[in-house]
Design a protein around this nucleic acid. Sequence first.
DNA 1: TTGTAAGCGTTATCAG
DNA 2: CTGATAACGCTTACAA
Lengths: 364, 364
Amino acid sequence: MSEGPHRPRRGATTIEDVARAAGVSRQTVSNALNAPHRVRPETLARVTAAIRELGYQPDQSARSLRSGARRTLGYLAPVDDPLDPNPLMAGFLEALVDAAGAEGQRVLLFRPAPPAGDPTAAIDELVAARQVDGLVLADVLARDARIAHVARLGVPFVSFGRTGPGEPQHWVDIANEAAMAAVVRHLAALGHRRVGYLGAAEELPWMAARRAGFLAEAHRLGLSAVPVFPAAPVSPAALPGLPAPAAGPSAVAAVRALLRGPDRPTAVAAGSDLAALDVYEAVRAEGLAVGLGGVAVTGFHDTPLCRHLHPALTSVRLPLRAIAGALVGRLLDQVRGEAAPVAGLELATELVVRGSSGGPAAGG
Amino acid sequence: MSEGPHRPRRGATTIEDVARAAGVSRQTVSNALNAPHRVRPETLARVTAAIRELGYQPDQSARSLRSGARRTLGYLAPVDDPLDPNPLMAGFLEALVDAAGAEGQRVLLFRPAPPAGDPTAAIDELVAARQVDGLVLADVLARDARIAHVARLGVPFVSFGRTGPGEPQHWVDIANEAAMAAVVRHLAALGHRRVGYLGAAEELPWMAARRAGFLAEAHRLGLSAVPVFPAAPVSPAALPGLPAPAAGPSAVAAVRALLRGPDRPTAVAAGSDLAALDVYEAVRAEGLAVGLGGVAVTGFHDTPLCRHLHPALTSVRLPLRAIAGALVGRLLDQVRGEAAPVAGLELATELVVRGSSGGPAAGG
DNA sequence: TTGTAAGCGTTATCAG
DNA sequence: CTGATAACGCTTACAA
């Protein structure tokens, strides 16, 4: 049984085998694969048959070495944050792999070597070893060190999350302000005139944008809006990498105070689904109800959690497949030598109305 | 600006450049990298300096082509299930990438091509293209088609989740029964004599194991135990790929009925953190409180959600880093030609006690 | 210990 | 449209 080190498919079918089986040269097989139009139809058919027959698939290493194309995109996984876990990582990654796969690309996951890993070092390694054609970055901050680094390296890249004005605009992002504005309009349409907002980790650009969008739209509609920031502000120095702690028990206290105040809001929007949990608790602790006849509550991200709350939580759904598709498309444009994106792309979100804001009380 | 297709680092520094810079042959550079002990110390130092100086890193494609080792492990992402999202995917993946990285391996993510993708086809593609040295499978079911397939292919593999008795035992798993037994003992130690259990997707092996572990330990301790299965049983035919729907509104109804019954349990364990949410709701709907002085509740997985509940949810924490480490270790053993694992490995979980079961009521 | 030669499987170039 | 030849960058033999 012991057959020595299990070298990957040593002796697997090669292009030569196919050529022999089809009675052509290996070059013709290569052409059949990479430039079918250059091969006579009947020859092509014969080669294709042989390929299927033998289950042949080109060795990606050989192909990469020769052509230079790795057919692989690197995804730099965001740093852990136990307190405010990236709720989109799972769903986003799946969408990214699918979008890449549709373009014949694979996704290579990588992260800084722990502990206290330096993302730029991890990027350097991957690029120097020529393992990927381009990079996908996520959770991009303002003046993000990773962006500066990959831009200087000249590697094709895109980011999920916008970059600053002076930086390359290779980003795709959701319209955070517009999303929260839609939430406010939804609440206003239900008759709410006094609305509260529970933020979380306000230092993160997307969280700041949500708060701003909320306040702006509330102001525009003439609503009375009160934002609440329970988390102690974090110094910018602490930013690189680690997002700040999100809401928690103190968030509940803050919302409770808000609900006891003189202008008790009849609706509270939260910057994330987890933060909405704190709103639920605060509302109940004050002897009020969430939803119809009580305080309306909304979240952000439309995580699976929303359906399991009672009442189910109204939330903002991210167009993950569209985001992933746009990222991959823009990245491959660069890989193929077309011009780098000159402007970022902002995608619309979708408001999913459920019982917590007066929608149907019972979930599907 | 237009410099043609951005071929990955074409013209990057090669082993030849290093050799020239260090005044040795390229073979010596290769030795310095792959077998340092075969190079004279002073030569080694000179080569190492040149390597650092030039930022040289071997081209992974060339290396793979020549040596056969891809230095890459494939991770087959579990299929989506919006109703019961795999709550460990994010944290597990991070641990897996770290564990692989510690062994000099990268992780390539792949999934069946949508729609209705066939996992075995996806595996075939990856293996035929020789892109990975081995495979990591997750969410393994009994008599899983993927296991049979990779076993027949002869590709090194491991699975997170145990395989059936007749199958290769290349698995690492958590001790689900023992975990739930620990939960029961915890509840018993707090004085609970009547305990309930809310399951979810009982057709999944790990869910079935949790239920069994709960019932067995309750019986052993002489407790009165009542399991509740709100979800309609799903026919085995529906299994391949898609797990069954988890709890939901009907779960709440079921638990409420349990709490209204003649032998009202004073504690309810849930098979997942999301299911525990339904228990919270049921307890409150019955006018009872969760935690001290009310009904004790526990979850499973220790997702970030636990800390955001009020009271915080007691839950079972998975040793994700140990799992990932064991998986990578066993996989690489096979890749290196050592014997395939002859028995699965069961890892212990950790019970994290919080307010929902009488622990400290306030979170950190 | 170091240098030389060969070849991994593929694609690009250039003759037929 | 097809077939021979070279080269991608590296590592494994073998010779010096």
